[in-house]
Structure formats: structure tokens, C-alpha cells
Amino acid sequence: MIDFLRLISAARARQDYAAVVRLFPHAEFLGVEFGEEDEGLVFRLPFSDNNVGNRSLPALHGGVIGAFAEHAAIIHLLWHMESAVVPRVVDFSIDYLRPGRAHTLYAACRVLRQGQRVANASVECWQQDRSRGIAMARGHFLLTREADLNRRLSRSG
């Protein structure tokens, strides 16, 4: 069993963001990067032909934008909370505002509500101009495994 709490806090202490991405094979596959800016964590997806959905424009695959936003939410939640498990997506919804062009894609996550079991996170995606977002995503993530929850419930009962 991977101890995420330990790995993430070690990476945070070293500011080793790439080490966190390497924990997630699909994030590495897409080419996700992130770092800490004044306003908080900012995620980056440098443009790659591999992530294109429409060759003639070219435009990013809508699924890439959605998956990138979901990685941003999960890593943001792990980075900021004391959790040893990877947040598990319950539902995820993306509004596409503009096509994703052949530029770096950025994302920032806001946790609107975090309870014991579930968090609501929203993710803003933009390219060259943050005031002209290309997508807005939101989703719910489970922060606990059933086994953990059962343990807690039996303890409190």
C-alpha cells in the first residue's frame, strides 16, 4: 500500500512537484506539471501533438482538457489535506467555453467545500489569458475509503 501522506509531505518539503506527478501514471502520460505561485497551485499542460483532438485547427481533445482538470483537482486536494488516500471521483462536469489551442493549458483549483467524506472542487482552465477561460470544471471527490469510514463509524457507535 502506497503511503500518499508521507510521499506528498516529503515532496512538499522538497518542493519536488514532478515527484507528485510521477505517482500518477496517467498524469505523466498527458505531461501534467504544476508549481506553487502567489495565488496557489497552478497546473500546466505544455502543448503536445499527442493531446490533439482536431488536427486541422489544431485543438486539444476535449477529454484531455477534462482529464487535466480532474488531475488538477485530485493533486490539489492531496497537496492541501491530510489524507493518505487518492481522492476518488464521484462525478465530474466540464463546461467548454473556447477551443483549446496549440498553447500551454493552465488550471487552478478551488475547494468550495470539504467535509469528512466528500469535497466539492471547481477547476478553472485557461491558456494565454486567464481572463478568457477555455473551460470550467467541477466535481465531487470521496476522501475516504469505505473501510476507513466503517472503522470510524464503529468507533463512534
Binding site: 505517482l23 500518477f24 496517467h26 502520460f29 476535449g62 477529454g63
Partner: peptide, 27 residues
């Protein structure tokens, strides 16, 4: 495939992989 995994502890594919599959088939 291994590089579609989103939770290395469980081996589950990342939710965004399903989003991509569903987006493409739906479109």
C-alpha cells in the same frame, strides 16, 4: 494499460480516461 492509471494503489484508471472515452464516443 498501465499508463491510464489514476490511483497507483488500486490500479484503477483515472476518471479523466473515462471522460475522454465518453467525450469521443458521444461527439
Amino acid at each position: 494499460r498501465r499508463d491510464l492509471v489514476g490511483d497507483p494503489g488500486s490500479g484503477h484508471v483515472h476518471g479523466g480516461v473515462l471522460t475522454t472515452l465518453i467525450d469521443q464516443a458521444s461527439g
